[in-house]
């Protein structure tokens, strides 16, 4: 898909995601879509730039990382627009953004379930141990370092 077509199609899809997020925000957290609309507008704009950057830049970073970094730069204490952007996105509950993601994720996992049947139970057990090992390995180191620094 060439860049111009990608831009148009991804913008359409961003608007769909925006509408889904507004709905989740309304149903789950009681925030009126009217109040949240400016924030979603900002999300669509940043999201669009990030998706295009993910395609154009040769850095091999996911567009998710670009979205995070752009929003981060707008919201750091030295940013002249910090107040405005935070006020806009405050109207979007964090958890409301996660439900559409995981709904799409669940549906797309449907493509993998048949391949999953080919994975032996031994490898699944190993994977679960890997999850535990990674998680508690990192948590233990963080805990020790934060404690040594006196942060916790």
């Amino acid at each position: 898909m060439e860049l111009p077509e990608f831009s148009v199609e991804s913008l359409k899809m961003l608007l769909v995601v925006g509408a889904l997020t507004l709905t989740a925000n309304w149903v789950g957290y009681g925030i009126s879509p009217l109040d949240a609309a400016p924030g979603i507008g900002l999300v669509v704009a940043i999201g669009f730039v990030s998706l295009v950057l993910g395609r154009v830049l040769p850095l091999d970073l996911p567009s998710f990382a670009y979205a995070m970094v752009i929003a981060f730069l707008l919201a750091i204490p030295f940013s002249p627009v910090q107040g405005q952007v935070l006020a806009m996105t405050e109207q979007i509950d964090f958890l409301a953004t996660t439900t559409p993601i995981l709904a799409y994720a669940g549906l797309s996992i449907g493509l993998q379930t048949t391949r999953m049947k080919e994975v032996s139970w031994k490898l699944v057990l190993v994977a679960v141990l890997v999850f535990f090992g990674t998680y508690f390995g990192s948590a233990l180191i963080s805990h020790l370092v934060l404690a040594a620094q006196g942060i916790i």
Binding site: G47, L51, F64
Partner: peptide, 14 residues
């Protein structure tokens, strides 16, 4: 899924 991650990415950055 990649597109739906955008609102979350923005929220995290903020």
């Amino acid at each position: 899924l990649v597109i739906a991650l955008m609102p979350l990415g923005v929220k995290y950055g903020m």
